[in-house]
Write a protein that binds this DNA or RNA. Structure first.
Lengths: 231, 231
DNA sequence: TCAAAAGTGTTTAATATACACCCATGC
DNA sequence: GCATGGGTGTATATTAAACACTTTTGA
């Protein structure tokens, strides 16, 4: 696989005809769910201008690499996961959005199961941040994050994508907590169950929860394909 | 304004470090409305591989030009219009989507009033094609067009953007025809009027239609800002 | 026996859909 | 006077929202 990640960005932004060339990157808002909270995976920026600030995970796109593939590569490299839910959101192309040169970036968001992640830290620090406690991010990543988060909120209203944040087996309570964390509001339990079950997207596993300090709930799995629609 | 349009694409796709650099372009599905039909502005391709085929209007993005600005520039250059409704849709970044080299393209759609257009033909032929009679397009432009068209159809369901296809003054009948052309189905007249008027987005101009072979309808104008949300 | 969440229906409100008649104008 | 679309309201169906009690388990 083509790896653009190890190259310095300046080898991709080359002065020709008197001006800098354009580089392409992808940036991913990788969402996870833990402790009833929606989280996003961030990395400590290595740019001197943004010392100590966090940024989304991204990388330059190699000239021989499909754009979508680059986003999958970033996910694979950082979380170890393949076949994850990935959605393209928007492309940010202001001339001065990146301090080092012209970088047009395409934003994606991904929904992953935090427990399955095997984070690859490399030289920088990775951390799952609660989306309700976001501090200022490096570059224009706050704008990119907000765009991704809104896109996810719109998506989940009528597309069943919440499972991707959960283990294969889950209870309706856990699924409801996912929806509540994404939408930022509490939902009526009976109406939620009614709506989800009427969609006929869940398969009853005839198993119940274990090790819960209350009456255990039924376990379900998604009866379809949890991959992205993109392929 | 930086003009990338006159350069040959090969001056932007330069072989460095043993492989071709990546170029950025924008492609616009420019929608118009005429004779009760939704139309899209296409240009005869000048690529030898696609001789005789039509393509969307697009151009390379100069390294000193914002991505959105490039889309506005294409619109201005081809239709003479400024301040039009423009929406970014998706970025297409397969390695082999363009025969000449690596070109990542960001797709936009625009809604314009055909009558206000002053088409600039330059060396190629421009034509408004009915969206119901689309023939195969050059490059991957059929995919791009379909993506833009679906995006518009989704948008119009709950966002009042249809006006952008009409003159400043219009009747409810004309507006309904716009919706019917975009959604590809006929709508109940009473329900349509009820819904639109309840949105309180129209201002009654206390004028009536002229030169219609039937009872003239009231004229309205949109009471807000018809520009894109992007700025 | 207590705490915590599972499981389960009905009533009400809001929204969307279906549908028909008289009116004003140009020809 | 006829063809064409303008203008209007109501009844029905569908969907969304509000709401409470009994049951099961672990501690």
């Amino acid at each position: 696989m083509v790896r653009a990640g190890k190259k310095n960005i300046n080898t991709h932004i080359i002065k020709i005809d008197g001006f800098f060339k354009v580089a392409i990157s992808v940036d991913c808002a990788i969402f996870g769910f833990d402790e009833r909270e929606l989280k996003v995976l961030l990395i400590k920026s290595d740019q001197p201008q943004f010392k100590g600030k966090w940024s989304l995970l991204g990388d330059l796109v190699s000239p021989e690499e499909d754009l979508d593939k680059a986003a999958y590569r970033v996910l694979k490299e950082r979380t170890g996961l393949e076949n994850v839910y990935l959605e393209q959101v928007h492309t940010f192309g202001s001339v001065r959005r990146h301090p080092t040169g012209r970088v047009v970036t395409t934003a994606y968001y991904s929904l992953v199961n935090i427990e399955q992640c095997r984070l690859t830290t490399l030289e920088n620090e990775l951390h799952w941040h609660s989306v309700t406690e976001m501090r200022p991010l490096a570059f224009d990543h706050r704008l990119i994050f907000d765009t991704c988060f809104k896109s996810l909120q719109n998506k989940i209203v009528d597309h069943p994508v919440g499972f991707n944040l959960l283990p294969k087996k889950f209870s309706l309570r856990e699924l409801q907590h996912v929806y509540e964390a994404i939408l930022g509001k509490s939902l009526d339990r009976r109406n939620f169950r009614k709506k989800i079950l009427s969609m006929e997207i869940l398969q009853d596993l005839n198993e119940i929860e274990d090790n819960v300090p209350h009456r255990p709930g039924k376990l379900y799995k998604f009866n379809g394909n949890t991959k992205t629609e993109m392929f």
